[in-house]
């Protein structure tokens, strides 16, 4: 299985790997809306989270918002580089600005998310 990218209505992305894990972050549209990020609070590695849980806090100059889990599972890694440089999310939201890696509890949840075409379409509304 090739890695695929899926999106939520709340502007999170999830890229799955064939080892049953996935990377999670926020979209370029989301970082642009938030503006320059100044602080990111990441969850603890090892925590079990449900789809929809607010697991990370994203602080911009103006406001604080949540990253909502697009899928359920166990957090197995977080991007610690965001502690020192939250601006990585502004620079490269879909790459170096990833938030966390999760071990998927239910791969079926991915089917409920949008593919890239559908997500891009939703931004035009």
């Amino acid at each position: 299985m090739m890695s695929t990218i899926k999106f939520t209505e709340d502007h999170e992305w999830v890229v799955t790997n064939d080892d049953g894990t996935a990377l999670v972050g926020i979209t370029d549209y989301a970082q642009e809306q938030l503006g320059e990020l100044v602080y990111i609070e990441l969850p603890e590695v090892g925590s079990e989270v449900e789809k929809g849980d607010a697991v990370a806090v994203i602080e911009s100059v103006k406001s604080a918002s949540d990253l909502l889990m697009p899928v359920s599972g166990e957090i197995i890694e977080v991007n610690e580089e965001l502690d020192a440089d939250p601006g990585k999310v502004n620079e490269d939201a879909l790459g170096a600005g990833w938030f966390l890696r999760v071990k998927l509890a239910d791969e079926g949840e991915l089917d409920e998310l949008m593919d890239e075409d559908k997500y891009m379409e939703s931004l035009e509304d």
């Binding site: 503006g35 320059e36 100044v38 911009s60 100059v61 103006k62």
Partner: peptide, 10 residues
Amino acid sequence: PVQYPMGISK
């Protein structure tokens, strides 16, 4: 206007 394209920080 809450901000322009430059962004709040800049």
